[in-house]
Simulated assay, not measured.
Amino acid sequence: MFITTKIADLVQIAPEDFSKESFVAIEDNINAKYANKVGNNIFEQAHETTHLTAVFVEFEMVVFRPFKHEVILARITHQTEEGIYLGMDFFNDIFVPAAELPDNSEL
C-alpha cells in the first residue's frame, strides 16, 4: 500500500522565500508540489514566473499507492458521477475514479 520512491526534480524558489533558510524553502516547495496530489499530473505543474531560483534536488518520498485489486478498509465519504471519495484513519480524501471501480459498480 505504501512505496518509497526516489525523485529528482528542479525546485523553483520564489523571491518571497529567499528570507527562509534554504532547506526550509526547498522543503516547503517540495511539499507544495507533491503533497496531496493524485495521479501522474504532479509533474506537469510548472510555474511561468520570472526571477525564480531553481535548485536541483534528489529525495525519497513515501507514496500511498494501493495495488490494483488490493482490498483496503475505508468508508465512502461522498460520491459524484466522476467517482467516489473514501476516508481512512490516515487519509480523508482518497478519490477513486469511476473507471477504476470494480465491474457492476453503480454511482
Rank of each mutant, 00 (worst) to 15 (best):
A14T: 13
H78N: 10
R65F: 09
V11L: 05
I30L: 15
M1N: 11
E106S: 11
F23H: 14
K37F: 12
N92S: 09
E70N: 02
L101P: 09
D9N: 11
R75E: 15
F2W: 11
K33Y: 10
P97F: 02
V96L: 06
A98V: 13
R65C: 15
K33L: 15
L101G: 10
D89S: 02
K37M: 13
I76Q: 05
K20N: 07
G39A: 14
Q79I: 07
V24Q: 15
N104A: 09
F91G: 00
V55T: 07
F18R: 07
N36H: 10
D93K: 00
A8R: 04
P97H: 02
E27I: 03
A98R: 15
P97W: 00
I30T: 12
D89H: 02
F23M: 14
I13F: 01
A54R: 01
R75M: 12
H78I: 03
Q45A: 13
A98Q: 12
T50K: 13
H51N: 15
E70W: 00
M1A: 08
F67E: 04
N41S: 12
F59P: 14
L86S: 06
P102D: 13
F64M: 10
A25M: 04
E70K: 00
E58L: 00
L107I: 15
H47W: 10
Q12E: 14
K68V: 04
D17P: 05
E21Q: 13
T5H: 05
F43D: 13
F23V: 11
F67Y: 05
I30M: 14
A8E: 12
Y34A: 08
A99E: 15
S19I: 01
N41A: 06
Y85Q: 12
V71C: 08
G83Q: 00
T77F: 06
I26V: 15
E44D: 13
L52W: 03
I13A: 03
H78C: 06
S22C: 05
Y85D: 03
T49N: 12
N29K: 11
T49Q: 14
T5G: 11
E27A: 13
I3M: 05
F18A: 12
I72W: 13
A74T: 01
E58H: 00
E58W: 00
E106H: 05
M88Y: 00
M1Y: 04
Q12K: 12
N104P: 00
I72F: 13
M88T: 05
D89M: 05
P15S: 09
V63T: 14
F43V: 07
V11Q: 01
L101I: 12
D17A: 11
K68M: 05
A32Y: 14
V96T: 06
E21W: 02
V57K: 02
E70S: 03
I13P: 04
F67L: 10
F56V: 05
I76A: 10
